[in-house]
Nucleic acid binder design. Structure first.
Lengths: 219, 219
DNA sequence: ATAAACAAACAGTCAAGACTGTTTTTAAAT
DNA sequence: ATTTAAAAACAGTCTTGACTGTTTGTTTAT
């Protein structure tokens, strides 16, 4: 295995390329292992095994375990934002209905990977000041991006522009709550279909103007 | 400090009394420490310190750490059920409105202790088959009790009896989702008031019959 | 005297960061 | 163009502390 053989097998990569590749592997592996093992059992050796990278290399690129996790969550939310935006564009173009968008959000994000990863990092953040401080800006960017997406989503005359984001955020809260429940209420898809069905009826009533949202006194 | 002095200070307690007291202390301490530290940092020594009981005694009464936690969650949900039932009785007696009930659920349970403890055990259960298997029956009892409470709650002519539980479960999912968000979106009570305000408007529309829920096709 | 409740010590496991060593790339010197 | 030195990327080992369940010992109730 001399220099000639090595050069023939693999072109010389710049430091930047090497860095991007290693970081990318670590971030992807972190999300996979976090989903599979949970935060409680998330060991750096396990991540590195999955990434095919040493712990020394991991620590070269990320100050500590927590820094790696925060970077991974950031990447997760950036990706999710792009995917949601893409589907939202289809709602606006009237290729899919708002009801179908709700189904998309449920089946593609909130009853699986995105939400379970959210559950893990949110729960860890609740009792750890450092994690929480690191994640609040990350999540705030996600919320702002969603609000921007929601603002451009609907043009229903019956729904004031200022209410659009509220309704969509309420939709997301419903789906998060359902996501929480899936953990200890599995094998009951009818229950979740039922909830979602009722929600769609409510959403349709709002979009059609049968329920008005202007006056939201604090009551 | 001889036997006579001890007897004079504290009456002789039966083994059963001692057991109930020790178990009670451990269970209460578990919930307190779980809320404060999270599942990730929940150490049995910390629980025992808080309970004023030795680890040996803890292990005498509970097979292992997990058994203690499951017993504590069971107790938590039994207590919450009783409290929710008591408020629901006041709704039925028309002492408080359904809207006020929603506020009660939010402020007393889903924006604080009950929900945060739920977050902890649900997240731990997601990736641990044993915990999940132990908690599913516990949580099922909670769900059944809630459905029974909901079934007796409203007598709105416009809302079919079969739909009452769905609407209340939908309410709880919304509140759970909001509870999840409070962790990384703190210091924004107006946001949560807004969401809750919109839901109350929708709830009122359902109760008043302006939105009908009979046909909930699976769409 | 015996059993149950309780306490403390023991033993083993595991994980993260610190640390040391190696390989690859880049820049400077020749 | 080649060599050398430095920097960056990467790998592997060590250290330390924390944790849980097991075991042994003590106290209280029957």
């Amino acid at each position: 295995m001399d220099g000639v053989t090595t050069a023939a097998k693999r072109p010389r990569r710049s430091q930047e390329e090497r860095t991007l590749e290693t970081r990318g592997k670590l971030i992807a592996a972190t999300l996979d292992v976090l989903l599979e093992e949970g935060y409680l059992k998330l060991a750096t050796q396990r991540i590195c095994d999955a990434a095919g990278v040493s712990r020394g290399a991991m620590l070269h690129h990320f100050r500590d375990k927590q820094s790696l996790i925060v970077a991974a969550i950031d990447e997760l939310l950036v990706s999710a934002t792009a995917e949601i935006r893409s589907q939202a564009d289809r709602v606006r173009a009237q290729e899919i209905t708002p009801e179908e968008f709700v189904d998309y959000l449920w089946f593609e994000h909130f009853s699986g990977r995105l939400f379970y990863l959210t559950l893990e990092h949110v729960t860890a953040a609740r009792t750890d000041d450092e994690i929480r401080a690191a994640l609040i800006p990350v999540v705030r960017r996600f919320h702002l991006a969603l609000d921007e997406i929601w603002g451009a989503l609907f043009s229903a005359a019956a729904l004031p522009r200022s209410r659009v984001a509220t309704v969509l955020n309420l939709t997301l809260c419903l789906l998060r709550g359902m996501g929480v429940q899936t953990v200890l209420r599995p094998d009951d898809p009818a229950y979740y279909d039922d909830l979602r069905g009722v929600w769609k009826i409510m959403l349709r009533a709002i979009l059609d103007g049968r329920v008005r949202l202007e006056t939201t006194g604090r009551s």
